[in-house]
Amino acid sequence: MARFGMVIDTVRCVGCMDCVVACKTENNVPEGFNRDWIAYDVSGSYPTPHMEIRSERCNHCDNPPCVSCCPTGASHVHDVGGVVLVDHDKCIGCKGCIAACPYGARFIHPDGYADKCTFCIHRVEQGQDPACVAVCPTHCMHFGDLDDPNSEVSQLLASRKHHVLMPDAGTKPRIFYLT
């Protein structure tokens, strides 16, 4: 079975937020909320600061604390690609998953359920990339099967330096950042 993940090239990314806008229109994300966002990680001091720009979202962790803490089973691992999803009908809006997620990836949708990135599973199941990947004008985002050594994402991870967010949290995130 495939294990979907994303590889994002921080060298190419300019932080334009097209990924955020595309997610919003594709998934009809309500005003005031976003399922993905841009992080500007600035260190050092002027005139020699360093800045890493990252497009961030749910990490669809291999070890997802939002799933293990969910009292109703609404948060679950989907059988296609191991994508972490929320079943809106089962969700009671208790916010346990929001507290459990170390990445701040979830919010309560105005309709009352926990919402977040779905890896655009509706597109992926039709053979398309997630909207954020497909829109990126800098071509900095890549989506695919991490378990397939020939996939673009696996090849990139094999050939480029990379890191994940909060590796110490033990969540085993599946979004990788090339540096």
């Binding site: 097209d18 955020v20 806008v21 595309a22 229109t25 497909a134 829109v135 004008p137 071509h139």
Partner: peptide, 25 residues
Amino acid sequence: LWKVEGNPEDPLSRGRLCPRGTGGV
């Protein structure tokens, strides 16, 4: 109207709009 995407035939966008174009909706 649902969404606006780049036209792959277009030499300017090469099939990918900028965030403002995507937000044209």
